[in-house]
Design a binder for these strands. Structure first.
Lengths: 342, 342
DNA sequence: AAAAATAATGCAATCGATTGCGCAATCTAT
DNA sequence: ATAGATTGCGCAATCGATTGCATTATTTTT
């Protein structure tokens, strides 16, 4: 269907027998235009239903007033909380936020990032997909000097502002906590180790074992994509070992939950017989039974910081790159708390 | 920082001493350009790192190849599944999808929708916020003839393609099921009744009561925003009644879960003493204990259909408006199943 | 009242890609 | 060899908003 053509500033100009320049300036409250003229312009604009064409404006200004944000999955609470944080700050500053998800697939991420670039976003905030690539699609943001902020899952080789949580300390604390609870054989359900997030958590795990004089056994750490299905499968793998663990530090809450379900099926009691700790504090974690001990990340704040960083970059206040490391907290709940267990 | 100016088709043209028209046509594989010239153009384009400026192209074409989707909350499984369905179909058809969330706030919804309009999305798919408005921001899509598809939460007074699930039948089945299980006094935790979704569910509930000769008592139906907190508060309200219900049909799974938690605190057994059914099948619902009976909605399919409808409209294959009603299924789990309960 | 200063507005180019129309070069047919 | 067809490409306008520079209208100054 033929697009009805929208009224433009030229239509307003024609109606009032003035120039489009004047209309444009009036609509931007440029003081060079008299109040009288401006009022006339505004009233005509309203009458004919004028809506500025941002495309034209963006083209001319080389600026879209839009910030792109790319996450692996929007339905992970951690990511949606980060998004909300970004939105809060960006909206206040007059920016629009466009969200996309990569589904952890490299190709989709590449397509999305290209499209955002093509649409000339003023900045990009991204947590990269699990599936590894060469990150050429992100390097062009650096090359073209378009503000880029990584959060949570970062690309070490690209120079940019980055915000991460202290995954190492998180992993360390989880493991130390399990040891303190008297668990003797602690397994680890790791994420893809090409991502620093997950390798740091594992390093924390190893460090805690080592500090406590517990030898690490390769078979006790299994890496996967951390979907719900992976959780059950990995739990099975671990429990099928000749010498199975009596506690599992899971890479996220989703796998922690599916592990608990699997252990229940085996007739094992959590936390009495097997301790479980997750990571990221999904909302269901405190509601399920047993409630899941987990690492709480300041997701909303992470989003706020990411937005602040990118706005600073866009507005050229900053020329150096920083890596912010945000703190995490261990929230001890039932799934790892033998002392409180009935 | 001065935006480094991107190479354009004019740069390519200058380099090869040909016109920009030719470059433009070559890059679109227009047969009017000879293979030899095209190859030269493409190789120069690659060498100098040319990336088309979609803004300019969209402006000229009055088309952005973008579909907007607005949902109340991206971290509700139902909505993120719909989004995934939309994305799947839209990507295949060569469209980009931009996602935004209204947080159920009218003002944010208005701002988002305006911005999408200003950016000239080719179509908009929306599930409206709980907070009611006059929907002027959506009516302009109709006025300007820009394709608009409502899903789940629709605006009855606006003529457009709509996709809903059979909420009435869903509500009916839930209630009938509870009656079949022998529950005698069935409460209902309703959503905001200005939304058809929720009023239909309530109508289903009323119809089932009536069919079974059970008189409806006003105090047994409480309306709220259905957040987790609302769930616990409403459950308290219902259980504090002089004659409290022995079953609750909750407006969603989130409130079903928080109700269960609250009932447990009261020392009441679910489903033995109180039966609970939710709506929408969040992933946690089958994992928690007791697992939550719920209504399964074909969310992903809903997204696919929404995308198909909007693509048809964009490509002018359709001129009439339809309302698709998708089926739902009752998934009986532990929270309402007295017979299986230990 | 003429000159100078100030205020208000217009002209035309620009952002980058697209496209109708026309011109020139090459090829085909007679 | 020449009219006619075909192929390959360029000119210039267009999409809608913005802005440096000029121009005109108005006010102030002497």
């Amino acid at each position: 269907m033929q697009k009805k053509s929208e009224p433009t500033i030229h239509d307003i100009a024609r109606e009032l027998k003035i120039s489009a320049s004047t209309v444009s300036r009036a609509l931007q409250n440029n003081p060079r235009i008299s109040l009288k003229t401006r009022d006339k312009i505004i009233s005509v604009a309203e009458r004919i239903g004028y809506h500025p064409n941002t495309l034209a404006s963006n083209l001319r200004n080389k600026k879209s007033n839009t910030i792109g944000i790319v996450v692996p999955l929007i339905n992970r609470n951690f990511f949606s909380a980060v998004i909300s944080g970004v939105e809060e700050v960006a909206f206040k500053a007059g920016y629009t936020v466009v969200i996309s998800q990569s589904n952890d697939l490299a190709n989709k991420e590449i397509a999305i990032v290209r499209s955002m670039f093509a649409n000339r976003v003023d900045g990009l905030i991204i947590s990269i997909a699990m599936q590894p690539t060469n990150y050429e699609h992100l390097k062009i943001f650096r090359k073209k000097n378009i503000p880029l902020v990584f959060f949570d899952r970062v690309v070490p080789e690209i120079e940019a502002n980055k915000i991460v949580v202290d995954d190492f300390l998180g992993g360390f604390r989880v493991t130390q906590h399990l040891i303190d609870q008297g668990y003797k054989r602690i397994g680890h359900m790791a994420g893809p180790l090409n991502l620093q997030t997950y390798s740091d958590r594992k390093r924390g795990y190893l460090e805690a074992l080592s500090k406590n004089g517990i030898p690490f056994e390769e078979e006790l750490s299994v890496s996967s994509s951390l979907t719900s299905e992976d959780g059950a499968a990995t739990a099975k793998k671990l429990m099928d070992l000749p010498n199975p663990p009596d506690a599992i530090f899971c890479g996220n809450d989703t796998t922690a939950l599916s592990s608990i379900v699997y252990l229940k099926e085996l007739g094992l009691k959590v936390p009495q017989e097997v301790g479980i700790v997750g990571f990221s504090n999904e909302p269901f974690s405190r509601m399920v039974s047993p409630s899941i001990s987990t690492i709480v990340q300041p997701a909303f704040m992470m989003g706020q910081k990411a937005a602040e960083l990118i706005l600073n970059q866009i507005e050229q206040k900053e020329r150096t790159f920083r890596t912010l490391v945000l703190p995490t907290e261990l929230e001890i709940r039932e799934s790892s708390n033998r002392r409180l267990a009935p």
